[in-house]
Amino acid sequence: MPDIILSWSLIATGAMFIIAIFMVTLRLLRGPSLADRVVALDLIGTLAAGAVGVYAIAKNEPIYIFVSIVLALVLFVGTVAFAYHLEKGGER
């Protein structure tokens, strides 16, 4: 019984993450300013790190957690670089 609960909740959580990433992608395409797009891209990366965690549980392979670590690390650098670019008067 617990196995069935876990497998169904894995399916539900994966679906929620897919829907969430899809909705944030809409904001990424629509966003009026560059800052909106940067925020959307940041959230997409964070959600991707979470989805990789869900995938690691689904496949029973803990090695995938490294992907989450690297995503979380790279995302921060990207966001700060975009903010620096904005503040130095780059192209909007």
């Binding site: 539900a12 679906a15 929620m16 993450f17 829907i19 969430a20 959230l43 959600l47 869900v54």
Partner: peptide, 8 residues
């Protein structure tokens, strides 16, 4: 999953 959906 619910919190992520809420953020989206």
């Amino acid at each position: 999953g619910l919190f992520s959906l809420l953020g989206a």
